[in-house]
Amino acid sequence: MAESRLVGPVRIVGVGLLGTSIGLGLRNRGIEVILADASPTNLSIAVDYGAGRAAAAGDAPQLVVVCVPPDVTAEIVARELASFPGAIVTDVASVKLAVLDDLRASGADVSRYIGTHPLAGRERGGPLAGRADLFIGRPWVVAGHDAITYQQATAIDDLILDLGATIVEMTAEDHDRSVALVSHVPQVVSTLMARRLTDAAASSLNLAGQGLRDVTRVAASDPELWVQILGANAKPVRDILLAYRDDLDRFIDALADPAAPGARRKLAEELAGGNAGVARLPGKHGQDRRFASMIVMVDDRPGQIARLLNDIGDLGVNLEDLRLEHSPGAQLGLAEISVVPEAVSRLTEELAARGWRIAG
């Protein structure tokens, strides 16, 4: 068992995906975890899965982590601050400024509070989706403010490091503007694209490839939760969407008459701008690296993906990313694998020698 930086105990309020995952990760390090949830069923499941024990009278946590929906986060944080005057309290809501403003307005003791946000999640929620390794290698924002010192917030840094995440320090304002750009607006765009599919003919949907699946993946997220998130971060999201509307208008104008002088140049400039934006996205481990891709044809039979991954591992090549595409009724699928560029030639040759068909 790895040595923990935290002393504990740690109280977790709300045992959905994040709360249960935090509990599981801390229990793996031997930290005493106390669980509380408004749902007795969720609490029982999280306890049974080993995320911690149920709260009891007399508990004296070192740290309280509030993992509840955004519309009640400030209320629960204020309650926890009042109930445990010896504890530092944090929350993991995806919006930070509104929570801090509400706490200040209520007169809560924010000298013992600092908001955080782990950039980790899954499409599924609830305690059954919890994983001890959910945060490993993921950024975890700490939104500092003037009323709390670095020394007072040490336990929160210890929590993040114990769970294998990377600390990112930001103000609440900068955090909310950042997540509006990289998370909240993409949710809106994905949702609107997916809505275009609701009345589409089945013959059209059968043509869908990985590109459409990539764009619409997060559209399957919980609407109730996203109404809360978007409402709490409305201004930054709206500002970006207004600029996005201007971008769309330029595209629409250029497409009105593609043969007009300069129209194709405008389209090319917009598309090249997209290339430039994608190139800025951090690669693996936060480095600005680009990986090379190759397409492997995979027969539609049980165990083929596992065999492919085993072969890649046997060849000593680190798989950076994997995407699968399988059209309805097709007898084979396409596995797009990403590796460092210098591995492509050898991997292509070695996989072909093992019977794999490489597209192109």
Rank of each mutant, 00 (worst) to 15 (best):
K235E: 15
V296H: 00
Q152M: 11
F84N: 04
A219H: 09
I240T: 04
G125N: 02
V72R: 12
D71V: 05
S190M: 08
A143I: 04
G211C: 02
I156A: 00
E269R: 05
G283E: 14
I312F: 15
A78Q: 13
S327I: 11
L163H: 03
V68C: 07
F84K: 01
I337F: 05
R301E: 11
E32P: 04
T171F: 08
E3Y: 05
V168D: 03
I337T: 02
G14M: 05
D246L: 10
I148V: 10
V77F: 03
A292G: 11
L230R: 04
D300R: 02
D146R: 03
V15W: 06
A259Q: 13
T154D: 04
V33S: 08
S183P: 08
R177G: 07
D257I: 06
Q187H: 09
I160V: 13
E3Q: 12
A256F: 04
P40V: 04
I305A: 08
G125K: 03
K235M: 15
Y244H: 08
I252H: 03
D174A: 13
S21W: 01
D288P: 07
S94L: 03
A256K: 04
L197V: 10
R307A: 15
M1L: 11
L319K: 07
E342P: 01
N318C: 09
R354C: 07
L309E: 15
S111C: 04
A38D: 12
A82V: 10
V317I: 14
H117N: 03
A105M: 06
V215C: 14
Y244F: 09
V296Q: 01
G23M: 07
D102P: 13
D158P: 01
L18A: 05
G262S: 10
E3K: 12
V227P: 04
L63G: 02
L315K: 01
R79F: 00
L161S: 12
P85N: 09
P282K: 01
G144V: 10
V218W: 03
A51T: 05
R124D: 02
G231V: 14
P302A: 06
